[in-house]
Measured scan of single mutants.
Amino acid sequence: MEQGTVKWFNAEKGFGFIERENGDDVFVHFSAIQGDGFKSLDEGQAVTFDVEEGQRGPQAANVQKA
Rank of each mutant, 00 (worst) to 15 (best):
K39V: 08
V47I: 06
E52C: 08
F27M: 03
E53H: 12
K65Y: 09
F38Y: 12
Q34V: 15
F15G: 02
H29K: 03
W8M: 04
G57L: 04
A32R: 05
Q45G: 07
F17I: 07
Q45H: 07
V28Y: 04
A11H: 14
Q34D: 09
G44R: 07
A11D: 09
H29R: 04
G37D: 06
E2K: 09
A11P: 13
Q64A: 10
N10R: 08
G57S: 06
F17G: 02
E12P: 08
F30K: 09
T48W: 14
K39P: 07
K13F: 10
K7M: 04
G35Q: 10
E21V: 14
G16C: 01
A60M: 01
D25H: 11
N10E: 05
P58Q: 08
Q45M: 12
G14Q: 03
I18F: 03
D25P: 08
N10H: 09
Q34H: 10
F9A: 02
E52T: 13
W8I: 04
Q45R: 05
T5Y: 14
G4Q: 01
V6A: 03
E12R: 14
S31K: 09
Q45S: 08
P58L: 12
Q59M: 10
Q34G: 08
A32C: 06
K13V: 08
E21Q: 13
F15T: 03
Q64G: 08
I18V: 04
Q45V: 09
V6C: 07
Q55N: 12
A66R: 14
A66L: 15
D36W: 08
E19W: 15
W8L: 03
E52S: 09
F38I: 08
G44A: 05
N22P: 09
V51R: 04
S31N: 07
Q34A: 12
F38E: 07
S31V: 04
D50G: 08
K13R: 13
Q55E: 11
E19M: 15
E43N: 14
E43V: 15
G57R: 06
G16A: 02
G57A: 05
D25C: 09
F9W: 15
G16M: 01
G16V: 01
Q45K: 05
E19V: 14
F15Y: 15
F49V: 01
G54Q: 06
G23V: 06
F17P: 00
G23Q: 11
F27K: 02
Q3M: 12
V51K: 04
A66E: 09
D24V: 14
D24L: 13
A46Y: 11
E21Y: 12
G35I: 09
V63H: 01
G4F: 01
F38V: 09
E21A: 14
Q45E: 14
F17D: 01
F15H: 06
L41R: 02
D24W: 10
G23H: 10
H29L: 05
D25L: 14
A46Q: 13
G14N: 03
Q64K: 12
N10C: 09
Q34E: 09
A60P: 01
V51L: 11
E2A: 10
A66D: 09
K7W: 03
K13T: 06
K7R: 11
D50M: 13
E12D: 11
F15I: 08
D24K: 15
K39A: 07
V6P: 00
Q34L: 14
F17V: 08
V26K: 01
A32V: 06
Q45D: 13
A32K: 08
E19N: 11
E53K: 10
Q34F: 10
F38L: 09
A32M: 06
N62Y: 05
